[in-house]
Design a binder for these strands. Structure first.
Length: 645
RNA sequence: GCCGAUGUAGCUCAGUUGGCCAGAGCUACUGAUUUGUAAUCAGUGGGUCGGGGGUUCGAAUCCCUCCAUCGGCUCCA
C-alpha cells in the first residue's frame, strides 16, 4: 500500500503495517516520540494496522492532536487511580481540554478533596511506570449494554444510548476498562509527569437540573521538565491577573458595603477611562456618530415593548416602585436609543443615523458568575446604534468592522477571533424571530464582510441573538479564560416592535435595520483585559501617570516642580516625588508603579536646564532639555494613537 | 444559583493537639539623613482575627449560619 506523508512524499509498505512500525522505519527518535497517527485525517491508535493506501501524519507532543491523545489517555489513567482509592465510583466522561483533561465522576457519596491529589498523582505515576498498554477491544452494542446493565452503570448506559447500533469500542489499561472511542497512546509509560489541578462540581450533561458530578481537572506531560515549565508559566500568568494588578496599581477596587460586582474606579482608573472615552468620542465623531445621553432607569412597559422582560427578568435588578409604576435599572441602552430615533421623524435622507453613548447598565449576574472586572453587575458600554436602510447595511457594517480593526491596531491586540453567530432555521419563530429571508440576507452580508476583510472568524450556528446575527470578538485573559471583548449585532426585529420607521423616497414608511455595536466593549471588561494584555505596563497615552520627576535631593524640588508645570501645561501627566528618599528608592518605586518615564534632576541638570530621562523597563536614555522631552512625549502619544497617519 | 476551597493590620503573609495583652515585613505618621539610576536609619501608630450565633473556665483556632472572594459548572439580551 502507498502511504503519503504531509510533505507529499510517498512510501510503500505492506498492508497491515501499523503507524508505529512506519515511525520506526523512519527513525528511532520519531518512534520514541510519536503518540498517535492521523490516518486519512482521522486520529487513530499507533498500533492499529493500516490496510490500504492512506495519508499519514505521525502525531507527537508538538501537535494539538498529539497532546489531546496523551491527555485523553491520562484521563483514563487518573480514572484507574481514582478507582483504586475510591472503589465503586461511577464515571461519566473524561475528555482532553485546552490545558489538560478532566474526568466527571459520581463519587457515590464518598468525599474527595485536593488533599487527596498527591496520593492520586503518585498512584498515577506508579501505574504509568508499569507501561501498561491501552488495549482496544471491539464489542457489539447489545453486549455492551448487557455488560453495563449488569454493572449497574447508568452513566455508561446513557452514553451507549446515543451511539449508533453496531460495534463499539472499549479500552483497557491495567485494571481499568472504559467505554471509549479512543484513540490512545500505546501505553501508560509515555506519561512521565502529572498534576491534578482542581476539583469542581459539574452538572451531568451540562444541565443545571441534573445531578452535579465531581469534575477533577489534571494535566500531564511527557517530561517532568515540561510540567515544571507549565507550572512556572501559570505563576507568571498570575502576575498579570487584572485583579492583582488592578489593586497594586490602584486602578479599581470592590467594597463589601457597595456590593459584589460593583467596581469602584480609583483615580488611576478614572484617568484610563477618560482616555478611552476620548479616543472613542474622537473616533465616533469622525465616523459620523451623534452623542446622546439617557437615564439609567425606565418603566416596565418599555421592556415589555422590547420583548426582553419576559425572558431576561431574572438577570435584571428587581424593579423599584414609584407612583404606582415599576421602574427597572437598564440592562442595555438600545431601547432608550430607539426612543430617541423614534422621535427624530427621520426620512431616508437622514439615514444612516448613528446614536452613541457610553451608557451605564446594570445586570443582575448570578453570584457565581462574578469575576473581577470581567463579569460585573454595573457596566459602562461603548455603545451605539446605527439605524439604516437595507441598502446601506453592508457599508455600515463594514465601517463598524473597520473601526474594530483600527482599535485592535492601537491596542496591539493580535490574538483574537471573531465569532460569527447565526440562527438555526428549525428554531425560527421560537428562539429566533420568524424572518427567514432577512436572516439569510443579513447573515450573507455579514459573512461577506468578514471574508472580504480577511478577518479570522469562526461561524457558530444557533448562537445568535433572537433579533439577528452577531459577531463577538473573543480574546483571552492572562489565565487563559476566553472572553467576549466586544460585540457587533444586527437587529431587524426590535425596531419594528418599537414602531420605528423612516419616510422613504416613495413616501411610504419603512422600518430601518439596526446595528448594535460596542467595539470597546465595556469599560470594565476592556480595562480588565488591557491590564492583562499590557501586564500593567500601559502605553504612554493610556498610562495614569506618564512621567515621574525624581529630584536627587530636596534641594532640587523647586526645579522639579517647574519641569512638572511645563509638562502639565502640555497635558502630560507628571508628578514630582518630593520625599526625602535616595534616588535609588525613588526610581524603584516609580518602576514598581510602572510609570513610563522617570526624569532625574539634580545639580548637573539644574545647572544645564536639562532632565535625565529614564524609561520604564529600559533604563537610562540620557539627558535633554525639558522642552525636548515634552515634544518627544507628545510625538510618542500621537504615534500610539495613530494620529497624523 | 450549584459543587469545592479560602477569608488575620491599608498591602503581602506568620500564628490551629483551644491557653500569657494576636505577630512580621512593606505602607502610613514623626524625626534624623540631603542622597546620582530598582529598597537610608530610628521611633510611633494601626487588627470587631469577614459578620452573627453556639460549644468551652477560656475560641483567630472547634461547631452552625450568613456574607464576600477564588476554582469550576450553569448563565451571559
Amino acid at each position: 500500500m502507498k502511504i503519503t506523508f504531509p510533505d507529499k512524499t510517498v512510501r510503500e509498505y505492506p498492508s497491515g503495517t501499523t503507524a508505529m512500525d512506519i515511525a520506526k522505519s523512519i527513525s528511532e527518535g520519531l518512534a520514541r516520540n510519536v503518540l498517535a497517527a492521523k490516518v486519512n485525517g482521522e486520529v487513530r491508535d499507533l498500533m492499529r494496522p493500516i490496510t490500504e493506501d492512506a495519508t499519514l501524519e505521525l502525531l507527537t507532543w508538538d501537535s494539538k492532536d498529539g497532546k489531546n491523545t496523551m491527555w485523553h489517555s491520562s484521563a483514563h489513567l487518573m480514572a484507574e487511580a481514582l478507582e483504586f482509592y475510591f472503589p465503586g465510583i461511577k464515571f461519566w466522561v473524561g475528555p482532553p481540554v485546552e490545558n489538560g483533561f478532566y474526568y466527571d465522576v459520581d463519587l457515590q457519596g464518598q468525599q474527595i478533596s485536593s488533599d487527596d491529589f498527591k496520593k492520586i498523582e503518585d498512584k498515577m505515576i506508579e501505574l504509568a511506570r508499569q507501561s501498561n498498554p491501552y488495549i482496544r477491544k471491539e464489542m457489539a452494542k447489545s453486549d455492551a449494554v448487557k455488560y453495563f446493565t449488569e454493572k449497574g452503570d447508568e452513566y455508561k448506559l446513557d452514553l451507549l444510548q446515543n451511539l449508533e447500533d453496531g460495534t463499539i469500542t472499549f479500552y483497557t489499561q491495567g485494571n481499568f476498562t472504559d467505554l471509549c472511542r479512543g484513540p490512545h497512546i500505546p501505553n501508560t509509560g509515555y506519561i512521565k509527569a502529572v498534576k491534578l489541578m482542581n476539583l469542581a462540581g459539574a452538572y451531568w450533561k451540562g444541565d443545571e437540573n441534573n445531578k452535579q458530578l465531581t469534575r477533577i481537572y489534571g494535566i500531564s506531560f511527557p517530561k517532568q521538565k515540561e510540567l515544571d515549565e507549565y507550572l512556572a508559566m501559570l505563576e507568571e500568568a498570575k502576575k498579570r491577573d487584572h485583579r492583582k494588578l488592578g489593586k497594586e496599581l490602584e486602578i479599581f477596587m470592590f467594597d463589601d458595603e457597595v456590593g459584589p460586582g460593583l467596581p469602584l474606579w480609583m483615580p488611576n482608573g478614572g484617568i484610563i477611562i477618560e482616555q478611552l472615552e476620548s479616543l472613542a468620542k474622537r473616533t465616533e465623531n469622525e465616523a459620523g456618530y451623534k452623542r446622546v445621553r439617557t437615564p439609567h432607569i425606565a418603566k416596565e412597559s418599555m421592556y415589555l415593548t422590547t420583548g426582553h422582560l419576559p425572558y431576561y427578568a431574572d438577570s435584571m435588578f428587581p424593579p423599584m416602585e414609584m407612583d404606582g409604576e415599576k421602574y427597572y435599572l437598564k440592562p442595555m441602552n438600545c431601547p432608550h436609543h430607539h426612543k430617541i430615533f423614534g422621535n427624530m421623524n427621520a426620512s431616508y435622507r437622514d439615514l444612516p443615523i448613528r446614536l452613541a453613548e457610553y451608557g451605564t447598565c446594570y445586570r443582575y449576574e448570578q453570584s457565581g458568575e462574578l469575576f473581577g472586572l470581567m463579569r460585573v453587575r454595573c457596566l459602562q458600554m461603548n455603545d451605539a446604534h446605527i439605524y439604516c436602510t437595507e441598502e446601506q447595511f453592508a457599508a455600515e457594517f463594514k465601517a463598524v468592522n473597520d473601526m474594530y480593526l483600527k482599535y485592535f491596531k492601537i491596542f496591539g491586540i493580535e490574538k483574537y477571533v471573531m465569532r460569527f453567530s447565526t440562527h438555526s432555521p428549525e428554531k425560527l419563530g421560537k428562539k429566533y424571530v420568524n424572518e427567514p429571508e432577512l436572516w439569510k440576507k443579513t447573515e450573507d452580508m455579514v459573512r461577506k464582510v468578514l471574508i472580504e476583510t480577511k478577518i479570522p472568524y469562526v461561524e457558530v450556528p444557533d448562537e445568535s441573538a433572537f433579533y439577528g446575527p452577531k459577531i463577538d470578538v473573543q480574546v483571552w485573559s492572562a489565565i487563559g479564560r476566553e472572553f467576549t471583548l466586544a460585540t457587533n449585532q444586527v437587529d431587524f426585529a426590535v425596531p419594528a416592535r418599537f414602531g420605528l420607521t423612516y419616510r422613504d423616497a416613495d413616501n411610504t414608511l419603512k422600518t430601518p435595520l439596526c446595528i448594535h455595536r460596542a467595539p470597546l466593549g465595556t469599560h470594565e471588561r476592556f480595562i480588565g483585559f488591557l491590564i492583562e494584555h499590557y501586564a500593567g505596563n500601559f502605553p504612554l497615552w493610556l498610562s495614569p501617570k506618564q512621567v515621574a520627576i525624581l529630584p536627587i535631593s530636596e534641594k532640587f524640588n523647586e526645579f522639579a516642580n517647574s519641569v512638572s508645570q511645563l509638562l502639565n501645561n502640555s497635558d502630560i501627566r507628571a508628578l514630582v516625588d518630593e520625599r526625602a528618599e535616595k534616588i535609588g528608592r525613588k526610581i524603584r518605586d516609580a518602576e514598581i508603579k510602572k510609570i513610563p518615564f522617570m526624569l532625574i534632576v539634580g545639580e548637573k541638570e539644574m545647572a544645564e536646564n536639562k532632565v535625565s530621562v529614564r524609561q520604564h523597563g529600559k533604563g537610562d536614555l540620557g539627558a535633554m532639555s525639558p522642552k525636548e522631552f515634552c515634544d518627544l512625549v507628545r510625538k510618542e502619544i500621537d504615534k500610539q494613537l495613530l494620529i497624523n497617519e
